[in-house]
Simulated assay, not measured.
Amino acid sequence: MVSEGLWSIGELARRAGVGVKTVRYYSDRGLLPEAGRSSGGHRRYGAGALDRLLLIRSLRGLGLPVPEVERVLAAGGDPDGALEEAVSGQLREVECRLVALRWREASLRLLHDGPPGERVERLRLVGTLPAPPDTEPLARFWRRSLPVRLPARVVSAVLDSVVPPLPAEPSPRQVLDFARLHALVSDPRVERPAPPLPDGEYRPAVLYEGLAEAYALASAELAAGRAPHGGGALDCFVDAYARARGTADSAAFRRGLPQLLARGEGPVMTRYWKLAAGLFAPGEPVLGALHHHLSVALRVEAGAGGGTRAGSGSGAGTG
């Protein structure tokens, strides 16, 4: 320490437990103000520089990049607010890394514990995925089937229902299911999902909003241990298609609707929902399963000689 009570760069570095190059780097960036210079032009620092340097070291120890450290130090009268924002951002980044590591671990376990004869095939599937993978290919697969004039809010709601969220802690089985699902939707030979109604005049927003209500009712009925039936979710389901076509729910319409629904069914969609089912959270309703239950209920009703709207006028439809 010099007689004026100032420290040299070496003394400050020693007291802070860092290298001289580190102190010089922070000084050059303006993070560590100098108190003056010696007669020979050497840097001199006051006692306050030690507290600031220790703070910088603590922030860097948490993984904050230098620009974030600069922003916290420049906050002035609100250092706590700037620190909270910087730490929150770092927490999000760490969580993303942890999710990536969990997906990588599950992928490795899938290969390590899998049958020897299947390891190469599984490697080809999971080896093409980033960690964590991206659900955008699944979203593109569905966007190709949605009407171009569908409102953005409806598109967003549909995608939220049909694209499974990525598990933060996937099992090896979930990794395999997602890899196969990704391969399915990325295969150029796979046809896009068929539109829910034939080409022609119909109101897409009315249909999709009505179906969302029907699926919600069906989910509640299944949770209560009841199969979808007339007077509830099934009426709402049929009503959505009828109103979208600008017609009434009638016996004739119900007899013809199963043929329309069959257009959207097939091996590709069956496989999609089989693979996607295990990626949704336990207890979360899977749209594909709800649609299947409603379609089956409609066919059973038609096969039993039904076709009139049960509970007509009860308000079970979408209005």
Rank of each mutant, 00 (worst) to 15 (best):
M1P: 09
V2H: 08
S3H: 11
E4P: 03
E4R: 13
L6H: 10
L6T: 14
S8F: 02
G10R: 15
A13H: 05
G17Q: 09
G19S: 13
K21D: 13
Y25L: 10
Y26I: 06
Y26P: 14
G30F: 02
L32G: 03
E34M: 13
G36H: 09
S39K: 14
G41N: 08
R44Q: 11
A47Q: 04
G48A: 13
G48T: 11
A49S: 11
I56Y: 02
P67R: 00
E68Y: 02
V72A: 02
L73D: 11
D80W: 07
E85W: 04
A86P: 01
R92A: 11
C96Q: 12
R102W: 11
E105I: 07
E105M: 08
S107W: 00
R109P: 02
R109D: 04
G117E: 14
R119F: 05
R119Y: 05
V120D: 08
E121L: 06
R122I: 03
L123C: 06
R124E: 10
L125W: 11
V126W: 06
V126T: 10
T128A: 13
A131T: 15
P133M: 03
A139S: 12
W142L: 07
S145D: 00
R149D: 12
R153T: 10
V154F: 05
S156D: 10
S156W: 03
A157P: 07
D160V: 06
V162F: 06
P164E: 03
P164N: 02
R173D: 05
R173L: 14
L176N: 12
L176A: 08
D177V: 01
F178R: 03
A179C: 04
A183F: 07
L184P: 14
D187N: 13
D187M: 06
P193Y: 03
A194T: 08
P196K: 06
P196S: 09
V206S: 11
A212E: 07
L217K: 13
S219F: 07
D235V: 13
D235N: 14
F237Y: 15
D239E: 15
D239A: 13
R245Q: 09
R245E: 14
T247N: 00
T247E: 10
A248L: 15
A251Q: 08
A251S: 14
A252T: 09
R255L: 14
P258G: 08
Q259D: 09
Q259H: 10
L260E: 10
L261E: 04
G264E: 10
E265W: 07
P267E: 15
T270M: 13
Y272D: 04
K274N: 12
P282C: 02
P285K: 04
V286C: 05
H292V: 04
A304I: 01
G305P: 05
G311M: 00
S312V: 14
S314A: 15
T318A: 09
G319P: 15
